[in-house]
Design a binder for these strands. Structure first.
Lengths: 146, 146
DNA sequence: CCCGAATAATTTCAATACGAATTATTTCCA
DNA sequence: TGGAAATAATTCGTATTGAAATTATTCGGG
């Protein structure tokens, strides 16, 4: 692992840690954990999704999401219901309380929202576009899909 | 969380997952976990480091690193010794076996090494430089240090 | 139509991961 | 210098994480 490779690794890791720290902050404000908030947000954007599809969307294992959903159901934020089309599957949706929670977390007081806006103020659209393109390219090569 | 912000979040998360998957693969080949390999690698690059400094370098909590070091000591890959300068601190170093393990993990057979090289073959030095610069800029803004 | 392969979810287990509390030691300043 | 504040590490509790095994169901080819 020579210089450049190491730089790339550390850069990716640092950006991710910074991002998760913000999500954790917003999540803590409404009394949940970061992964729970990410799951709620995903469900807000796409209701009635199957557990497997949710796990795929989030790049998490089924077992992981299954446990997280357990806790969200216990907290009254999410409901599980068996799929009518496929009796193996379960369909997930937000409860009213779940909706309120995610909206409160990412609402006016959200640190993450403020910082993401700041990025758009301080970095030009061309550079952001460039950033996303390179990020995607690096990811594709890392996955061996080039 | 509108379009661009979400794109940035997902891009960062995806790159990190791809990276960690590779590290996990190399680590599994030598019979350890990804975090354990990252710790061993860090110790290879900087021997005789204090636990607190190691945790800081890796952006991990002290308690987390303490537990990971426990397992590495049990496996005979790392040794703990009390610092002479500061009796509160412990100094960490690799054993001979620890050195061999990390060198084997990131040696010729390393998938991560191969993919990082591939990045340098497929992406121009200017673009890599640009990538690292933007990555750093985004991280700084996310941390609120702009 | 039927049975083996594939798929969806859960459970279990070991390893992260972090915050809070605790213990031991050092620092620093009144 | 004496003691409060800060620092280093560990322990504890809870919540991720993913691989592997398990169960239930669906799919697909003969």
């Amino acid at each position: 692992m020579e210089g450049i490779g190491r730089d790339i690794m550390y850069a990716i890791a640092r950006a991710q840690k910074a991002l998760y720290r913000l999500i954790r902050e917003d999540a803590a404000r409404v009394g949940i954990t970061e992964v729970q908030l990410i799951v709620l947000y995903t469900l807000l954007k796409k209701e009635h999704i199957r557990l497997h599809d949710l796990a795929e969307k989030l790049n998490l294992s089924n077992s992981n999401v299954s446990g997280t959903v357990d806790r969200l159901v216990s907290a009254g934020l999410v409901v599980r219901e068996p799929s009518k089309r496929d009796r193996r599957a379960v369909i997930l949706s937000l409860t009213e309380k779940g909706k309120e929670t995610v909206l409160a977390a990412f609402g006016e007081q959200s640190v993450l929202r403020r910082r993401l806006q700041r990025i758009q103020e301080l970095i030009s659209p061309e550079e952001i576009e460039q950033f996303l393109r390179l990020q995607e390219k690096v990811k594709t090569i890392l996955l061996g899909e080039e």
